[in-house]
Design a protein around this nucleic acid. Structure first.
Lengths: 342, 342
DNA sequence: CTGAAAGCGCTTACAG
DNA sequence: CTGAAAGCGCTTACAG
């Protein structure tokens, strides 16, 4: 390219570097030649020269994308807005994490943002290689930067909502073992329920998916444990599964006989067939925060760790939605109903 | 690293290159030093030296991920199985495509797989740069490689299913303008319905999302067009929206009064609250095919275009599921019901 | 098997 | 402003 335009390599480099000092004339000539030849600077070569790739790794459990696809878009948009590309690592299992970190380290990625836990060893390696690490919706280890939703507060909020509706016998579907999000939420829930004098009369431990919610209900039914008037699940997907189980398999009226609530405020929780009150995460804000924190930390890897915690937002379907379980209510016109989906 | 281990740069390169000729002894020494220092070859540098990055770009509409998250995982897994990393470009709008291609061209990506249309200009650029292009679920332009589900055949299959249930008055929800998947499906549907002597008595054009399905039903209701006994939507998400509208807003019994069917076989179409018959795409097979085709084309960019077309699979919920709309049927035990979610 | 050399495509002080 | 030179971290003929 340099020779094609009859200039030095330095010149073409400068022509493509925003603030560089090139004469307007020369720059124009280079740019013109470039479009003619279909030339564009090779970003990878630049990356090895500058030691900056403008690519970050994103580590996400497939489960998260399956049951909360909003997250990926929000992050993708936020990073693309600051000119950073994403190399995606979609995990199906914890044991893929080390291998993933290996890849992150091999590609000269500028940083990694993870919604999965990072084993100690990998953490050391990242630190040694000085690649900025940002936890998303999980505290991470000591001294790690993170951006999260305040799940404990969300738990308190949803429990308060349930209490306010007059419920005292509660069923809960927790999340499996090491889900930090799940345990934080449920810690908040229990704390507030205790404060409000409500009792947890049924418990189940699920996997964050629809089937877990269904399984919880069937399990309880078998044991005669379906004596609660409200059910709090650790996320919407399980709440929806439980709701379907209660309504379609046990024939309970939801929410009239049993109130079912969840977390995340996913799209499906607003479907009129589901209509689950929920605490939504401010995904866009969180993602923007993640992107800007990442940019800061790329610029200065020694920057002290910061944790940003965002409050969730209670999203409660209108009463019409909540009561629509048994079908169309003749007191409402179709047009009103239309809003339910928006 | 080379000097740390007291060897030449060539030696360490060879130590990390599978078939290269290094003495076992030297190789061991290098590898040991590497783990001690936490050294690993810089893949980007290798990429500029070899002109191969082992990274492909994946262009996907956000809409696709939102309403069919299965796709991303399948592709991610298939590519990771052949040692190829994915740089993700999640689009919200058509007009981001050119810019995306620009990025693809700038990073020395080995290829691009796209589920979005590629404008002519971009197509030329990719061809000129000799970067292999693979269309996913879309025919692409003349002479383009692609892997797709046979959407026309799927349309025929679902229409045949509907006809077999004895339906003759059909409503259809098409997809917007330039959705190739949507129009292929509907072409198949119409062809088969015509052959079977059924009439399309209501039409609507949607956006592939839940709200479109809901809107279709409300629109028809307003015009007094809800006279069909079966409704075919261009994808599951719209089918589910329509189903909810019919059941919860219009008070129709689904599927007893109106049969609603869709395409994709997404997880939500198997929820017992929805239970939509559908034609599923063999996502895993398609993704594996995509990965291996991409690998072939990376190895030989001049390879002639190939199109691989996979048949869809009719997935029809059990009768119990289909009739569960109005709640638990006392003739069935909870344990039987449990299978619905699996 | 092995190292020195040249090259991949860029960037960035350094002298003009 | 501008080019030659050295360097980023690798790979790959080329001679031993």
């Amino acid at each position: 390219m340099a020779r094609a335009a009859g200039v030095s390599a330095s010149a073409v480099s400068r022509a493509f570097t925003p603030g560089a000092s090139v004469s307007a004339d020369k720059k124009a000539r280079i740019l013109r030649a470039a479009t003619e030849l279909g030339y564009r600077p090779n970003v990878m070569a630049r990356a090895v020269a500058t030691r900056r790739s403008n690519v970050v790794g994103l580590i996400l459990f497939n489960e998260t994308n399956r049951h909360y696809p909003e997250v990926l878009l929000a992050l993708s948009n936020a990073f693309s807005a600051v000119g950073v590309r994403i190399m995606l690592f979609l995990l199906e299992d914890d044991d893929e994490i080390d291998e993933t970190i290996d890849h992150v380290l091999s590609y000269q990625l500028d940083g990694v943002i993870t919604a999965a836990p990072i084993p100690d060893g990998a953490l050391q390696q990242l630190r040694a290689a000085r690649v900025p690490l940002l936890f998303y919706n999980r505290p991470g280890a000591e001294g790690c930067a993170s951006v999260s939703c305040d799940h404990v507060a969300s738990g308190i909020a949803i429990a308060r909502y349930v209490l306010a509706q007059g419920h005292h016998r509660i069923g809960v579907i927790r999340a499996y073992r090491d889900s930090s999000v799940g345990s934080e939420r449920m810690a908040g829930v229990e704390q507030e329920l205790a404060r409000g004098g409500a009792a947890i009369v049924a418990e189940y431990r699920g996997d964050f998916d629809y089937d877990s919610g269904l399984a919880a209900v069937l399990d309880w039914e078998e044991r005669g444990d379906v004596t609660f008037t409200a059910l709090i699940a650790a996320n919407d997907m399980m709440a929806i599964g439980a709701r379907d189980g209660l309504a379609h398999l046990l024939g309970r009226r939801v929410p009239n006989e049993v109130l079912v609530v969840g977390f995340d405020g996913i799209e499906a929780s607003r479907w009129i067939g589901n209509a689950i009150p929920s605490v939504a995460q401010p995904i866009e804000q969180m993602s923007l925060a993640a992107a800007s924190m990442m940019v800061e930390r790329i610029a200065d890897p020694d920057r002290l760790a910061e944790r940003r915690l965002f409050a969730g937002r209670l999203s409660q379907p209108s009463t019409r939605d909540l009561n629509s379980d048994r079908g169309w209510n003749p007191n409402h016109s179709p047009n009103e109903g239309c809003n339910a989906g928006n």
